[in-house]
Design a protein around this nucleic acid. Structure first.
Length: 176
DNA sequence: GTTCTAGAAC
DNA sequence: GTTCTAGAAC
């Protein structure tokens, strides 16, 4: 089994499921990039956002419902979370990220980690939903665009601060 | 996706 | 000399 199928294997074990419905499940991200970081995955075998079409809109609504549920279950505030998909996913099985905006985590280690959640490489749930409604599919970003976004400066998500490197960004995030 | 680590950056 | 980044992983 290659590493890309790790999520599919993870959800096979009921012990890993924080929430489970007929349609979807919620698990904790194995390498959380913030104080709270969950993944919502459909039980249906959909590899990624690129397999979606208009028929999946009700499924997306179910995923978002579970996203709101896990935030509530954990006693957290909806407004303190980002909910969305990576524009360039690495792991198989469609997964909706539910991540708190603090980004305080020892697993946050690289510029790629930061920019994948804090540039257009992160597609908010609502944006993906609207895009799918309109176009009946999700287009892959051009390689050059991905590289441009990955190389963006380390701009704080809560103020105008731009960090010189990852350690200084992490130190800064702790101050918020 | 992570781990490891060479060599760049400081 | 130490910190930090970025590319290979058969």
């Amino acid at each position: 089994m290659s590493w890309q199928t790790g999520l599919i294997k993870t959800i096979l074990d009921p012990a890993n499921l924080i929430i489970s419905t007929d349609i979807a499940v919620v698990i904790a991200d194995k390498y959380p990039k913030a104080r709270h970081h969950y993944l919502v995955l459909p039980k249906e075998d959909i590899a990624s956002i690129f397999q979606l079409n208009r028929k999946h809109l009700p499924l997306l609504e179910e995923l978002h419902l579970l996203a709101r549920n896990i935030i509530e279950v954990r006693g957290e505030c909806f407004e303190s979370f980002r909910i969305g998909f990576h524009a360039q996913p690495s792991m198989q099985r469609l997964h909706l990220h539910v991540i708190s905006k603090d980004f305080v985590s020892s697993w946050l280690k690289t510029k790629k980690h930061w920019n994948s959640f804090n540039t257009s490489l992160f597609i908010p749930y609502e944006a993906l939903y609207e895009n799918l409604s309109k176009n009946d599919k999700i287009e892959r970003l051009p390689k050059a665009k991905v590289e441009e976004l990955l190389s963006k400066p380390l701009a704080c998500n809560q103020c105008e601060f731009v960090a010189k490197n990852i350690p200084s960004l992490k130190e800064h995030l702790l101050q918020h």
